[in-house]
Design a protein around this nucleic acid. Structure first.
Lengths: 231, 231
DNA sequence: CTCAAAAATTGACTTAGGTCAATCTTTTTG
DNA sequence: CAAAAAGATTGACCTAAGTCAATTTTTGAG
């Protein structure tokens, strides 16, 4: 188990470029925590006493409206950091985090973690890179929600998932349709209808949680400009 | 002029906590640039050769749809950094930046700037705080656009502006209504209608670019839960 | 001060996509 | 394996807010 964790840490973006042995010290300031499916890791506005690194499982980070509708900001997996914003600014967590599968997390207390970063410029730069990437992603998400219609957002997101898997034609969603809907900023009913329309136009083929991309070109054009009706 | 700049730098969040004299070295790696009203500072996807610090003026950072509609991500002013994301991750700028008034910027070439950060942990932590704050803001923006209706977004934004000015009752917008519309993710026509409705309900009083907040409580409740019709 | 350009407003109209409710399907678990 | 719970789909309906076009108001350049 212990070596297991160390090996995982060695492959984590955030620790990239650290001298050997250093990982050991880092492990010492962290403690492991396990979360059950659907368990909250933290909630919006709560004081942030530290940050987390995901060892295994999936964590969904989301905002919630008073009416209970949720907008997923991202779904994080193994090796990704969680809750840094509260550590570096403003103290409180800016959103909710919940395990969507059973998950193991490493917890780093705020103070020790900041000291670590202060002492190791490499870590600081790695963290800057990670935060910058998240900002870039948010930028795309805001553009998407605000300037595109649902079919275009869905097409973008499918192509994005495919890119992440080296351009795979066949996507096996590891999240529910309801969650997919929340990611692209809509509701399950609408998602369902649009998946249907995209299927009948021959853009995709849906089978449960498996989605096949049949016509990348049209998907790309849909993602950029068009509405589904124009096709 | 020179001393002018140094004094400004000393008050910039990013340089907070630096030993004296250090500012001098920093100024040496930077160069000043002036941008006319409406001039582009950089555009989405362009390679980022460095980052900027705003000395004076206002810069709007925005995404644009193929149809030409724009979503403003933020409007930055004096003392705020611009374009860091490209420096720390991914090379290219994630959005467009344009001067909305004549502006003076300090430009820091990428390489020298990264070296500076690597050498000074204080700078690294300051920058982490700045990026974290921006992430927090984006989080709010995504929630707002995706989970709230336009009246609620407008109410939130007005209250936010007021908070920034220590709770001032009377806001003097320093941007056009079209830009305000773009910030809250709508179009001028809709903004106009909703300002009207809010006025006739006695929530605000609008006079050109001046907006008076008449009923904070109702504005707050509108921002949180409701739709304008329910009031 | 005048006049053209830019910004803001108003009205008529359309529609994407949300709500609510019913049904069907898949998963879980006792 | 059966029943219940969770997830997904479908239909009927409604509305917030976008589009287009026409004015009106404000701004700033000469």
């Amino acid at each position: 188990m212990e070596t297991d964790i160390r090996q995982l840490l060695a492959n984590v973006l955030f620790f990239r470029g650290l001298p050997d042995g250093e990982l050991e010290r880092i492990q010492q300031i962290a403690s492991e925590r396990t979360y059950q499916r659907n368990q909250l890791v933290f909630s919006d506005g709560e004081e942030g006493r530290g940050f987390f690194l995901i060892l295994s499982g999936q964590i969904k980070v989301f905002k919630m409206s008073p009416e209970g509708k949720e907008q997923i900001l991202h779904i994080l997996g193994s090796g990704e950091p969680l809750g840094q914003v509260a550590v570096f600014a403003g103290d409180s967590f800016p959103a909710n985090a919940q395990a969507i599968t059973e998950s193991r997390l490493l917890f780093f207390p705020r103070r020790a973690f900041v000291d670590l970063i202060r002492a190791r410029p490499t870590l600081a730069l790695n963290m800057l890179a990670i935060l910058s990437n998240r900002l870039r992603e948010f930028t795309v998400q805001i553009e998407s929600i605000s300037l595109k219609e649902v079919p275009a957002r869905l097409a973008s997101y499918l192509l994005y998932l495919s890119d992440e898997k080296q351009g795979a034609e066949r996507l096996a969603l590891n999240i529910s349709k309801a969650q997919l809907a929340s990611i692209i900023g809509t509701i399950p009913e609408t998602l369902s209808r649009i998946l249907n329309r995209m299927s009948s136009k021959g853009l995709i083929r849906v089978n449960g949680r498996e989605i096949g991309l049949l016509d990348r070109d049209q998907l790309a054009s849909l993602a950029e400009h068009g509405r589904l009706a124009d096709l």
